[in-house]
Design a binder for these strands. Structure first.
Lengths: 155, 155
DNA sequence: AGCAATTGAATTGCACACAATTTATTCATC
DNA sequence: GATGAATAAATTGTGTGCAATTCAATTGCT
């Protein structure tokens, strides 16, 4: 194995961590599709709901668009239309903060809260049908967390 | 730790492998941005070019849109406009196969071929500046490959 | 109080992703 | 050789992502 081989190999698609990440992410989102179709949500909408459900149990100081954006690492350009759709679906309420009119506060509607109960059974079923060994995923989740921390630190 | 705690924990964002994948993928794409800006490419365009460069060294039976789509796991709805943009940039040539008029054959222009030489130095610099330890990424790449194979097998 | 700088959302514009449909071509079978 | 099924791209429509800008509200400073 020569040095130039090593270098050239760095341009092979299959050696690209970035491609594997990108492809795996889309593949997992695709795997979630049947479940999300039943819930009537898109994947990023589902992630937003996860945060809002979490906030029910342990409310943050401010349940604003900004806070949600920091949690999901998404900006208002993505979240504003997404949240308007969740509002249209009757799952989320959006209202300006009275303390600071710049902030938009987010709250779950009754339907949004109720939707939570349908998720776990669907997710269990998905996990079963996918035939994925949960224990195998532990290590991956940890490595991903490290990579994420690393990339975020250097940006 | 009760059973219901275990279940509830499955809805916490930070416990979602899917979210970590999704966030890490976007973070890595963001990290590539400075390099891709210099090349004048978007991230999926870069991936397409990686495949086309690879095909120079070892040509596939058919260098078609379909073959590229299988390699990148993307469909024509994504690739058609993307490839038209690469053609506009003067990097790629698109022409119907004479053997089968349904197929669209892809080829690199001289400029497309030449662009390859600028990638490795930029990538080396990116890797250095990011401060990422390449060895740490090996394990992650392997786990991702396994996950990818797993999810693809069950779809 | 007055005003510049900052902040939080919204908006705009571009490029994906992907489902669903359409169109053109080829294949298979009769 | 006609024709129905299959195939490869292209098209259409919806929903992100994200950079850049705009707008309104607030904060800091004098």
């Amino acid at each position: 194995m020569t040095a130039s081989h090593d270098l050239e190999a760095q341009l092979l698609l299959d050696n690209q961590l970035c491609f594997k990440l990108y492809a795996a992410s889309r593949a997992v989102i695709r795997a979630y599709k049947p479940m999300l179709d039943e819930l009537g949500l898109t994947y990023p909408q589902y992630l937003a709901m996860l945060v809002l459900w979490e906030w029910q149990a342990s409310p943050p100081e401010q349940a604003t668009v900004k806070a949600l954006g920091e949690r999901l690492m998404l900006d208002s350009g993505t979240l504003t239309p997404l949240l308007k759709r969740l509002e249209q679906l009757g799952l989320v309420q959006r209202r300006r903060s009275s303390a600071d009119e710049r902030e938009l506060c987010l709250a779950l509607s009754a339907a949004g809260l109720a939707l939570r109960d349908r998720v776990l059974p669907l997710k269990q079923r998905l996990l079963c049908e996918s035939g994925v060994d949960v224990n195998e995923l532990e290590g991956l989740r940890e490595s991903l967390g490290q990579l994420l921390a690393l990339v975020r630190a250097h940006s």
